[in-house]
Design a binder for these strands. Structure first.
Lengths: 332, 332
DNA sequence: TTGTACGCGTTATCAT
DNA sequence: ATGATAACGCGTACAA
C-alpha cells in the first residue's frame, strides 16, 4: 500500500492540492470549513508530509549536522544531548557525526552533510585548526577556535578562567608546586587551560619551568612509570591540575600504586566535572562547564544565522565555568 | 550563486542528463571517453548530488534513526558510536534521537523519522514495552525486548549469564549473602539480570528473600540512609551485585561514608565495565558487554532487512558477556 | 477563497 | 552508447 500523499488528501477532501498545502502550512487564506474537513482527512489517513519533497522544493532540509570527536566523552555527549533536545523542539533533526579526531572522516562527513542539504552545521572541538570549505552553509564552532575567528561565531567555555581558578585554589590550599597534566595533542581549549595555569603560577610568584611543571601524557599503559620518573626528577611537586577528569582519575590510581595519598601527599583538581568526580575516592575537585548555557547559545545563534541567512554579529562567546571543590584538593 | 546540478554537468559536458546520471551511478553503458569528460567536469565544479531529489525519486533516504534513552550513559553512547561508524562506511547517515525515557518524545521522534523516510530504525532499550506502530519500515531492537518478539529481530547481551556469573563469582569468593542493587524501573535487561542473580543463589543453595536480598534505588540524595537501613535490617549481607557501574560507584561512596571497607567488609561487582571501573579505588569488578559485536550484528541485520525488504529470519540474538574481575570482589 | 500549472534534481523507461 | 521525458511530493505564482 502506497503512502498517502498530499494528492490523496486533496482528492479525499474534495479540494485542490494547493488548498491542502495552504491549510497544512497555515498560510494563504481558506475557509474554516475546508480547514476542518482537510484536517479531519489528514487525521484519518495518518498522513505525514514527505520531507524529501519538501526539502527539494524549499531547498531546506530541517536538519543540522554535528561534528564531534568522540561521543563517549562526557563533556561532548552532554553538550550534544542538550543541543539535540533544543533543536528537536524547533522541528530540526540532528545528524551526529563521530569524527574520531580523524581529518578524513571529518571531510567525508562534511561532504555528506552538504549533500543532504543540512541547514547548518555545529562543529565541536577537534585537534586541528578547522578550515571550513563551504561558505554557503551556516556553521558554528564550539570549543574549537576556527581559523577565521572574525568571520564566524565561536562559543566556548572560559577554559582560561577555569584553569586559573583551579590552579590558584591549589595554591591557596598551601600547595607550593602545582604541576599540570595534559595530553600531547593541542586543542585550542587545552592551550587556553595551559595559559590559565601558567598565569596563575605567575601571579603567585611561582616560576614555571617546563621539566618540573609539565607532565605530558595520554592514557598509555606505562603512565605510572612516567609519573614516577617525573616525581623523582622534581621532588617538590605537591599537586596536580589535570586537564580533564579522566586524566585526574588516571593520576589517582597511579599515585595510589606508588603508595601516595590524596589529598595528603598530593592534591588534585580535574576538569569537566564528570560523574567520575562524584564517585571517586576521594571525591574529585573539578571545573564544571556550563553545558546548558553552551547548548542554548549555540542553538540560538545557529537558528538566527539560518533564518536570517547571515550572521547578525560575529563574535566569540566565552561561557564562565565554575570550580567545584571536593575532597581531592582539600586539607586534612 | 546557485549550486551546480546534474543539469549543469550535462550542459558543460555536452551530453544529456541521463548519461551523467548513468556515469555517476555506474550503471548502463557509456564510452570511456564520455565517462572521463563527465568526471572531469564534476571534479572541476565540485558538484555534489542532491540527496533530497534522490530520496524523493527513489523513495529512500540513506539514513537510519536510532532511538536511545540517554546518550550520556556509557553503554548507550558506546553502542551508538560503533553503530554510527559502521553505517557511515555503508553510506548511511545516522539520526540519533534522545528519548530521555519519555514515551511522548519517543512517539514524536518516530513520526519525524518516518516523515524523513528513514530506511530503518534502531531502537535501543527503554523502560516500557515497545509498540511499533508502523509495519512499513524495518527496525531492530537492541536491549529492549519488543512486544512481538517472533516478528522482529532482537539483539541483546546475555544479561542473564552476566548476572549469574557475577553472583556466582561472589559466592565462590566466600560470600554467603550477596544482595542485588537495582533501579526501580524494570527494563527487560534488568529483569534478565535479576533472574540470573536469583538462579545463581538457588544453584548455590542460598534461599532468596526479598527484604534481605533486594535493594531498590535510584541515585537519589538519601541513598546512604536507605543503604544503612537495609544493612541494619539484614546484617548478614556481605556483598552486592549492582545492576550497573554507576550504582556500584554509588555503593562505593556510601559504604565508605558508613565506615565500611571494600572488598574486606563488602565485595562488589558492577555491570557495563565502564571507565569508572578502571579508575575507582578499589578497581571495580564488572560485567563487560560486547558492544562491538552488538553494533556489528545490528547493522548487518538491519541492512539485510532494508535491502531485501523483509526479515530473512526472525530471531533473538544473545551476545555473550564477560566478567572482568578486579579488586572490588577479591579476597585480601 | 480556491484551483491550475510549473519547477525543484534525480532516476528509470523507452526510444534511437 | 546516448537522449528525451515521465514521475516522485510539495509549495507557490498566477489566474479565476
Amino acid at each position: 500500500m502506497k503512502k498517502t500523499s498530499i494528492k490523496d488528501i486533496a482528492k479525499l477532501s474534495g479540494v485542490s492540492i494547493a488548498t491542502v498545502s495552504r491549510v497544512i502550512n497555515n498560510n494563504g487564506r481558506f475557509s474554516e470549513e475546508t480547514r476542518k474537513k482537510i484536517l479531519d482527512v489528514i487525521e484519518e489517513t495518518g498522513y505525514q508530509m514527505n520531507f524529501s519533497a519538501k526539502s527539494l522544493r524549499m531547498n531546506k532540509s530541517f536538519s543540522v549536522g554535528i561534528l564531534v570527536p568522540d561521543i563517549s566523552n562526557y563533556f561532548f555527549s552532554d553538550v550534544v544531548q542538550k543541543i539535540e533536545e533544543e533543536l528537536f523542539e524547533l522541528g530540526y533533526s540532528t545528524i551526529i557525526c563521530n569524527t574520531g579526531r580523524n581529518i578524513e572522516k571529518e571531510t567525508a562527513y562534511l561532504n555528506m552533510l552538504r549533500s543532504k542539504l543540512v541547514d547548518g552545521i555545529i562543529v565541536i572541538s577537534g585537534v586541528d585548526e578547522f578550515v571550513f570549505h563551504y561558505d554557503d552553509i551556516p556553521y558554528i564552532c564550539i570549543d574549537r577556535e576556527p581559523l577565521k575567528k572574525e568571520k564566524t561565531i565561536f562559543i566556548s567555555s572560559n577554559h582560561y578562567q577555569g584553569a586559573f581558578e583551579a590552579t590558584e585554589s591549589l595554591i591557596n590550599n598551601g600547595c607550593k608546586h602545582p604541576a599540570i597534566l595534559m595530553y600531547d595533542r593541542q586543542s585550542s581549549s587545552a592551550k587556553e587551560r595551559f595559559k590559565g595555569y601558567k598565569d596563575a603560577l605567575k601571579k603567585n610568584n611561582i616560576s614555571y619551568n617546563e621539566s618540573s611543571h609539565l607532565l605530558l601524557s595520554g592514557l598509555e599503559e606505562n603512565f605510572t612509570e612516567n609519573l614516577q620518573a617525573f616525581l623523582e626528577r622534581t621532588d617538590q611537586v605537591d599537586s596536580f591540575f589535570a586537564v580533564n577528569d579522566t586524566l585526574a582519575m588516571k593520576l589517582f590510581s597511579s599515585l595510589k600504586e606508588l603508595g601516595e595519598k590524596i589529598p595528603e601527599d598530593f592534591k588534585i583538581i580535574g576538569f569537566d566535572d564528570s560523574p567520575l568526580a562524584h564517585y571517586s575516592s576521594p571525591t574529585l575537585s573539578s571545573v564544571k562547564q556550563n553545558t546548558d548555557k553552551i547548548a542554548q547559545l549555540t542553538v540560538k545563534n545557529l537558528i538566527d544565522f539560518i533564518s536570517s541567512g547571515k550572521i547578525i554579529n560575529y563574535q566569540t562567546i566565552l561561557v564562565p565555568v565554575e570550580l567545584v571543590v571536593r575532597n581531592s584538593s582539600l586539607n586534612n
